[in-house]
Design a binder for these strands. Structure first.
Lengths: 146, 146
DNA sequence: TATTGTTATACTCTATAACTATA
DNA sequence: TATAGTTATAGAGTATAACAATA
């Protein structure tokens, strides 16, 4: 006989909290005309781990066609430049613009506001334990970019 | 000047981890013909916090019409009974069947398997810190049922 | 009239498949 | 032929709006 309750599992709590947090983050992003996946793309670019659209699709684990529309939107906002690689003109190399970096900073600001909401009411020790635990888990799960 | 990196925020990590975890949980649920929201409904029922479809919709924060189709599916699987309340025949009162409880136990099993995957490679101390931190956060965020 | 549940419809997000251009 | 990107199309998931039954 197993007495574990589903709402007490990590899977359930992480899934539910993730949805709540993404919803709150998303609401703040709307002010900048962005969705979470746009931020994922900006973050992927800034990390330097991918530049071409296909590499970004792999890193984000989304379809290449989705990267097209995300990049369209970000280009339209002036957040990135799209340039054909001279060495292989099939590749579209995406580069963050200064405007894109500023936009990313605004998104980061939005995220830290959500963080503040989440941790208000937690002791400093609890908040630090949470950060530390998530860092370990994120590293271990091989976090792709959302 | 702000040096916080977006991937280091709680919002980003919780959102991303939540998506990964939900995906893994979902893959295991498929074996039972369920999606995460079905599990949310079963969990809501088992909690005793809601019985009528409208109450469940409020608790889960989803549209009443979605509860209809989730309950349709669960009824079809024999996991719940639908009965009009004699006192107010507009209300459909949902009740977990024995089969429903068994199904919920299988879902819980799936969740604990995901938990095991997540925490393998973490020290016992790290795993406990994570559980504890999430418990605090979940309580504080007033976790609705996924 | 107001409320509960249901059905009909539409919208958002994302993937798959077909296509173009380069290699 | 194979690959990068694009466009066209389709599917999943969910919400909103219209409706029926009951209060």
């Amino acid at each position: 006989m197993n007495d574990v309750k589903l709402p007490e599992t990590l899977a359930f709590q992480l899934g539910t909290l993730g949805a709540v947090v993404t919803e709150r983050f998303s609401a703040r992003l709307a002010a900048h005309g962005l969705k979470p996946k746009h931020v994922g793309l900006l973050t992927a670019l800034e990390s330097g781990m991918a530049a071409s659209q296909l590499d970004i699709a792999k890193l984000m684990d989304v379809a290449p066609s989705l990267v097209v529309s995300l990049a369209d939107r970000l280009e339209e906002l002036g957040a990135l430049r799209r340039e054909r690689a001279p060495s292989d003109r099939r590749r579209q190399v995406l580069t963050l613009t200064t405007e894109g970096r500023e936009l990313l900073a605004l998104c980061t600001q939005a995220a830290t506001e959500v963080d503040a909401e989440l941790t208000q009411g937690l002791t400093a020790g609890e908040a630090e334990a949470l950060r530390s635990a998530l860092r370990v888990l994120a590293r271990h799960a091989g976090l792709p970019v959302t």
